[in-house]
């Protein structure tokens, strides 16, 4: 168990399988100055994410889960504390292209084909055209989009577009993948299928994933670690290590272990609301 109260020393002494820390967050706060009073988007966050973990941040809106993932991605500045990504600051990690980021909406460029959208980060990194194309085609295959490379984004369904954006985020093989409610706008059937594909992708490649969601089922199905957060001020109420095996399938959602973990998450969410 890895509670926020754990001191950094203890968690370093007992590293779970996977070993090195991908993300280390110590006593971190984010405060926005507004006209009337400061808003504590995040308050005293402590969190360790080890390499190869699939970590979900779950909580009601306003709990700071998106802010937290944006802090790790250097899209948001912290007011106090310490954040390390691969042992360096988020800024340095971003410049070192340590992570891929999948946004709530696919954010594909409409003037680029699917292939050209996936090669975009590679182009920015100065890879040759031929290289970038080969890599992008391979990643499109991994998300199940063979034969769609010449299409334009508007010719694809919402679920396919989000898969393109995942292929794009992974195209340069970042060790960390951050996803901010990536399937929030999709229907439940598409969402289930994408969850299954994402789970398989994680199993094959064991990248570190930081996943923001407000769906309990999604969090339990995907994660090895579930971080339950609560709002005003944004904080972590509980960290649940999932007892589920790594090899998962959708039918697992009817097992007693799954239901038990889901129950635990729901309890923690309720606790967070009652404080």
């Amino acid at each position: 168990m890895n509670h926020p109260e754990d001191s950094p020393i203890i968690s370093r002494l007992n590293p779970p399988a996977g070993g090195r820390l991908a993300v280390e967050i110590r006593q971190t706060s984010v405060v926005y100055q507004t006209a009337d009073s400061p808003v504590h988007a995040l308050e005293n966050i402590d969190l360790n994410i080890h390499e190869g973990e699939f970590v979900s941040l779950i909580g009601p809106s306003g709990c700071g889960k998106t802010t937290l993932v944006r802090v790790i991605a250097d899209l948001e500045q912290i007011s106090a504390g310490l954040v390390l990504v691969n042992g360096v600051s988020p800024h340095e990690a971003r410049l070192a292209r340590a992570y891929g980021y999948v946004f709530q909406s696919p954010a594909l460029f409409p003037w680029r084909t699917v292939l050209a959208n996936v090669t975009l980060p590679l182009q920015i990194q100065g890879r040759t055209k031929a290289d970038a194309k080969a890599i992008a085609l391979e990643h499109l295959e991994r998300v199940g989009l063979v034969g769609f490379d010449g299409k334009y984004p508007w010719q694809l369904s919402g679920g396919m577009q989000q898969r393109v954006s995942i292929a794009r985020a992974l195209s340069f093989e970042p060790r960390i993948l951050m996803m901010d409610e990536p399937f929030g706008a999709l229907d439940e059937i598409t969402r289930d299928r994408l969850n299954e594909q994402l789970q398989q992708l994680w199993q094959r490649e064991r990248r570190t994933v930081v996943f923001v969601t407000h769906s309990i089922a999604e969090a339990v199905y995907l994660s090895t670690k579930i971080v339950v957060m609560s709002p005003r001020p944004g904080r972590i109420v509980k960290v649940i290590e999932s007892p589920l095996p790594d090899d998962r399938h959708l039918a697992m959602r009817d097992t007693s272990t799954f239901i038990q973990v889901a129950h635990e998450v729901r309890e923690a969410l309720a606790d967070g609301h009652h404080d």
Partner: peptide
């Protein structure tokens, strides 16, 4: 969201102009 995405790719100012803003 599009400018932030370019930011996460550590695109420089010229790249953001040439690959996003101009098109």
């Amino acid at each position: 969201i599009e400018t932030e995405m370019m930011h996460t790719y550590a695109a420089n100012w010229w790249q953001a102009l040439w690959l996003l803003r101009l098109p």
